[in-house]
Design a protein around this nucleic acid. Structure first.
Lengths: 361, 361
DNA sequence: CTGAAAGCGCTTACAG
DNA sequence: CTGAAAGCGCTTACAG
């Protein structure tokens, strides 16, 4: 594929334009304000604000009301959210802070979140941290700037104290945590028991007769807990746990780590990947190395991404419901923001998981 | 899997809390403002603003500067973005409006966009329209409220006039269009030639000897252009084009539409899906119906989602570079916002595509 | 029923 | 070098 130039002015793909395509780039028109409507109707700005916000009981006469509504319509008035937010100290916007939007589990989580936020009258913003400490701190900084009223956050690096500090501004926070944990101050946590899930999956491999099992994992976020569960199951069975370290939770990282391992003295009969993307990456590396799955090497993942059931072979993995988790998190936020939970202490909610057996093991 | 209760207070999964977990929910502390720093240092708010914004040349004495910086640090000052935005009429935030964040091509597009936005010092917000007319209008409304300085948008329903109307507020817009198109006013467009790509893919199937080819498509967004290309190629070859209509671009919609078709008098030797998600869905339906791919039915898609190469069989499809397209779109915006292109008329940019031959055909 | 006024937290001329 | 003041567009007591 030819690489299109990324510098706009120099793009070779720019199409010739007919003369009539040349038009003023930006409408110079200033957006109408409440003041404009007030002047146009001869009423006060206060009256305009009252009518446009449907403040009840409405003390404005019906006649004035109609004139205001019509003029607002005619002028194409749209409220300036920055001004409204500044005054009300509320944005009616919620955020999702996630590590990697290209990992399918996060869009699913966000969709669930968004559907509930939407029903509650909130917009949803998405902030991608890339799973790096630096960008997680930027996300915290961004939160403190007052863009949103509440947030569902997944952090791999930043600690509880830093999150609590960000919450100081009165923002509602629910963290999707990676381990069974005590709630902290006014911060709710939702999580699955990652260690237990990993332990169950490892046990399943052991039950199938595997003794040389390696875990392909990345030691951050949920990776740590999943490794803990893996190690616990292996030790309990008197087997020695081996960790193949990847530097990220991506497919590319999985291929890299697995290929490196295969170039050495790889002698395992099963690989348990800490997430499905790593598993897919490992699958590619194993195939390249001529190892058959599951005949030569069994492979298991974690997440049950949509592709898992269409892979060849289909992938044994751990499922939880991201949609449900996202919806649940948003409802927790709504209950704090507009519901009865405003000053409720933080709570922890453990959600269920399920092992999904397929052909790869 | 047990369905966790979605009503927070009633969740069965709520864990018991130890007494010391019960803590005040929200820090009552008001966020410090420039005024607080001014009072604490005995200097004026103007001086505080000047120092904190590093306005050059800095007319504030070195001594005062240090005092301000230290006090800001001690108080944990974070600027209120709403106030700053209101005053400056700039948000330094860009938006991506996309139809469905769970379709992998959009996260890829967003990642590319975000990397360039980031380099230009802009935050990125994501708005999911669900591909519905109603939510697209809400997105336009949201744009008009002044949340962002610029936007990359993909619309399936809303027309050019409505978009132009939204741009009236001086917001920079680049549309990811689904067809070769003339730019409109100050709005840039990036696109691939969907009709040509579909035509090429159809021709490829014809060249492989297929005569009874059906297109599985959804008649909105890029679906229309892709159908046009399909029909053109079929007619040129003297074959009659058949369209199997899906009601969305999702995997589920693909399975539904294909299953319904298979229940009837399905007699095609090849199916060309308008996107990969539809193809994956069709694959499931074909498998359920006992049809082998590609022996009984050849299958092609469009997008080259990451899973395409791991499906069984691997999927023949059309690839373009979403990352590149996203980055390119963001750069177009940056050039308008902070660069030399401020008042440049709208332009159109065609990006390349590529047919990827795999095992499914 | 209606409007003048204060204020949200900030930036930016402008005057000392 | 420093600060008083106006103003971004809105909401919300408060006074007529």
């Amino acid at each position: 594929m030819k690489n299109p130039k990324t510098s706009p002015p120099a793009s070779a793909a720019a199409r010739p334009r007919a003369a009539d395509d040349v038009q003023p780039a930006r409408a110079p028109a200033r957006r109408p304000t409440q003041r404009d409507i007030a002047i146009a109707t001869g009423l006060s700005q206060t009256a305009v604000s009252l009518v446009l916000n449907r403040v009840e009981p409405c003390t404005v006469s019906e006649e004035a009301k109609q004139r205001i509504l019509q003029t607002a319509q005619r002028l194409g008035y749209v409220p300036n959210r920055m001004a409204r937010n500044l005054q009300s100290a509320r944005t009616r916007t919620l955020a999702c802070i996630v590590p990697d939007i290209t990992n399918p589990i996060y869009p699913a989580l966000i969709r669930g979140f968004q559907s509930a936020a939407d029903a509650g009258g909130y917009d949803t913003m998405i902030f991608d941290t890339d799973g790096t400490a630096e960008r997680e701190h930027r996300a915290l900084q961004w939160l403190a700037q007052g863009h949103v009223d509440g947030v569902m956050a997944i952090f791999f690096h930043v600690d509880d104290a830093a999150v609590r500090e960000a919450a100081r501004g009165g923002i509602a926070i629910v963290q999707v945590a990676s381990q069974v944990c005590k709630p902290s101050e006014g911060i709710d946590k939702v999580y699955i028991d990652n260690a237990a899930a990993a332990k169950a999956m490892t046990q399943l491999l052991i039950d199938k007769g595997h003794e040389r099992i390696a875990m392909l994992s990345c030691p951050m976020g949920p990776g740590k807990e999943r490794q803990r569960g893996f190690q616990a199951a292996m030790k309990k069975a008197g087997l020695s746990p081996c960790i193949i370290a990847a530097d990220d939770f991506t497919q590319a990282a999985g291929t890299r780590a697995m290929a490196a391992e295969l170039a050495g003295d790889f002698h395992h009969s099963a690989v348990f990947a800490a997430n499905d993307l790593l598993a897919v990456g490992a699958m590619a590396a194993l195939r390249t190395a001529g190892r058959r799955i599951p005949e030569d090497v069994a492979l298991a993942g974690f997440d049950d991404i949509p592709a898992a059931q269409f892979l060849h072979p289909t992938l044994t993995t751990v499922r939880r419901s991201e949609q449900t988790m996202g919806r649940f998190a948003a409802e927790l936020l709504l209950a704090r923001l507009d519901g009865p939970d405003a000053n409720r202490p933080g709570r922890g909610f453990e959600l269920p998981f399920q092992i999904v057996l397929r052909d790869s093991t």
